[in-house]
Amino acid sequence: MRNGRSFGEWEQQLLERFANRRPLALTPQQLAEKWPGISRNQIAMLCQTDISRVNRWLTQGRSQEKPSPYYSQTLALFDIFLEFHEQLPAPLISRYCDCD
């Protein structure tokens, strides 16, 4: 799909900055600490997974399970949307948050 744009110097610079970024990852524990009141059910809905998996992520001890990079990245992206929602342009929110 062409959008009428070319990949120029500015785009290359953005690519390099993006490729060299810090890893985008957040644990369920970090999200829950940062946003008190978020429930395990909401985390499950956000990650499109079941509550039993979230419970394993949030359990302490031997039965604790580490979320995959996909889930950690999803949680980090949601945190960015929560933290900066007032500054995000509507087209960006629509692009990533609407089901249409």
Rank of each mutant, 00 (worst) to 15 (best):
Gln30Ala: 15
Glu33Tyr: 01
Ile93Asp: 02
Lys66Arg: 15
Asp100Ala: 12
Ser6Cys: 09
Met45Trp: 04
Ala76Asp: 08
Gln30Pro: 06
Asn41Gln: 09
Gly37Asn: 03
Glu11His: 05
Leu14Ile: 14
Trp57Cys: 09
Ala76Ser: 11
Asp79His: 07
Ser72Trp: 01
Glu9Pro: 05
Tyr71Met: 11
Arg62Thr: 13
Leu15Gln: 11
Asn55Phe: 01
Tyr70Gln: 14
Leu26Tyr: 02
Pro23Phe: 05
Leu88Pro: 00
Gln42Ile: 00
Arg62Ile: 13
Cys99Tyr: 06
Thr74Glu: 13
Lys66Asn: 04
Ala19Leu: 14
Pro91Gly: 00
Thr59Cys: 07
Thr74Ser: 10
Pro69Leu: 15
Asn3Met: 13
Trp35Leu: 05
Lys34Cys: 02
Gln87Asn: 13
Arg56Gly: 09
Ala44Thr: 07
Ala90Val: 04
Gln48Tyr: 03
Ala76Pro: 08
Glu11Ile: 09
Phe78Ser: 08
Pro89Leu: 04
Leu46Met: 14
Leu46Ser: 03
Ser63Tyr: 05
Gly61Tyr: 10
Gly4Glu: 05
Arg95Met: 10
Gly8His: 06
Phe78His: 10
Glu9Lys: 07
Pro89Asp: 04
Gly8Asp: 10
Glu9Ala: 12
Pro23Val: 13
Gly8Asn: 12
Arg95Asp: 06
Arg21Lys: 11
Pro91Val: 00
Ala32His: 03
Leu92Asp: 00
Arg5Lys: 10
Gln30Phe: 03
Ser94Trp: 00
